[in-house]
């Protein structure tokens, strides 16, 4: 028996869970497959986070630092779990470095994978250099280089943001809403307008889903203070006339086809299940839900339960998730893990 906890994945959910467990004196092994902690916000170089407006490097960087400095948390970078066996109170994980990690409970905070825009070739990503993703625009901002057209470094005068790239699209087997792209896009649109006041930003949408309080802070504010324009249209294709990108579609509100030139087109890419989810599912013997995310066995009774007792899940591993909710779920799953540990200990 051991009361240690194994956490797989060092993004916001995993960092939050590790910190929560260590803060009440529990030993944690945090396994991270890449060479650095922080998850998507750090790896993908996010700029200012939604909804706090804090820089990702500060906000998530602070969480990373807190975990890295905690003596109760053993961080194993560049490491994956190869084998996983046992029962609550006594799990054994064989790691890629050959070592074995013992754990009374396990948390999967394995996150998501950004949608690869190459899978929507009609929208020009990979064909035209000035078609970029929201992640790339985040990097342009976080690197302080500013929003520029990759083809020649010029400041764009007109930018189109296409929502639901890799979301709500049966053609490519992705029927889910990725939840955060609307707010992130509104946020980026405001960032662009702030940096380049002469640049007009158009958002092409099917619906705007800036849920809850994000409505005023992002959707309304982007229109009222930053004069971002929203057009209800799903774009048919992005081509080029040699100088500019040509965006074709139907403006549904005027029932007329549009063929509009743009300097830059931004794909608001969605959240796919982690590409490793099939592997994770077989190693940890946890079920995936129909979209390919890790299935939650229980909605109301136990937070973050998977189909396997003693193994819990939190954050975007369970489906498209915001950073703050991932953190909250990390805490909640840590609590569930403690409960499972106590039960196993009492049965001993």
């Amino acid at each position: 028996m051991t009361d240690q906890v194994l956490i797989v994945g060092g993004g916001p959910a995993g960092l939050a869970a590790a910190h929560a467990l260590a803060s009440i004196g529990r030993k944690v092994t945090l396994v991270e497959k890449t060479e650095l902690l922080g998850g998507a916000p750090i790896h993908s170089g996010y700029a200012k986070l939604v909804p706090s407006g804090e820089w990702a490097s500060d906000a998530i960087g602070g969480m990373v630092k807190r975990v890295a400095q905690n003596r109760l948390i053993e961080v194993k970078l560049n490491t994956t779990v190869k084998k996983f066996a046992g029962a609550p109170g006594d799990f054994r994980a064989t790691l890629s470095d050959g070592s074995e990690a013992r754990a009374g409970a396990t948390l999967l905070t394995t996150g998501f994978t950004h949608f690869d825009s190459l899978n929507k070739p009609e929208w020009g990503f990979g064909t035209f250099p000035d078609v970029v993703t929201t992640t790339q625009v985040e990097q342009m901002i976080s690197s302080k280089q500013g929003v520029r057209c990759p083809s020649d470094g010029r400041k764009p005068k007109r930018v189109a943001i296409l929502l639901c790239v890799g979301s709500r699209d049966r053609q490519i087997g992705r029927e889910w809403c990725s939840k955060i792209c609307c707010s992130v896009s509104a946020n980026l649109a405001m960032e662009i307008r702030e940096e380049l006041p002469d640049c007009h930003v158009y958002v092409y949408y099917m619906d705007i889903r800036t849920f809850g309080l994000l409505e005023t802070k992002f959707y309304w504010r982007s229109q009222e203070e930053f004069k971002v324009k929203y057009i209800k249209a799903r774009i048919a294709e992005v081509t080029s006339n040699g100088q500019q990108l040509i965006v074709k579609g139907e403006d549904t509100l005027v029932k007329r086809p549009i063929t509009i030139p743009f300097d830059m087109v931004v794909h608001a890419i969605g959240m796919d299940p982690n590409v490793d989810n099939m592997l994770l599912s077989s190693i940890f013997d946890v079920k995936l839900e129909p979209h390919g995310f890790i299935d939650r066995a229980n909605t109301y009774g136990v937070m973050g339960a998977t189909s396997r007792p003693g193994v819990f899940v939190a954050g975007a591993a369970t489906g498209p998730e915001t950073i703050d909710d991932s953190i909250a779920q990390g805490h909640a799953a840590a609590m569930s893990a403690l409960g499972a540990l106590n039960l196993a200990m009492a049965a001993e």
Binding site: Y219, E224, P261
Partner: peptide
């Protein structure tokens, strides 16, 4: 063809510059 081939970006600002038009950019249809 009835294709819309460009936006006249000045139009909204022009209406907004006249009394009564100030809040037009808020509209969400």
């Amino acid at each position: 063809p009835r294709v819309v081939t460009d936006y006249n970006e000045a139009l909204q600002d022009e209406i907004a510059a006249l009394p009564g038009g100030e809040n037009i950019h808020r509209c969400w249809q």
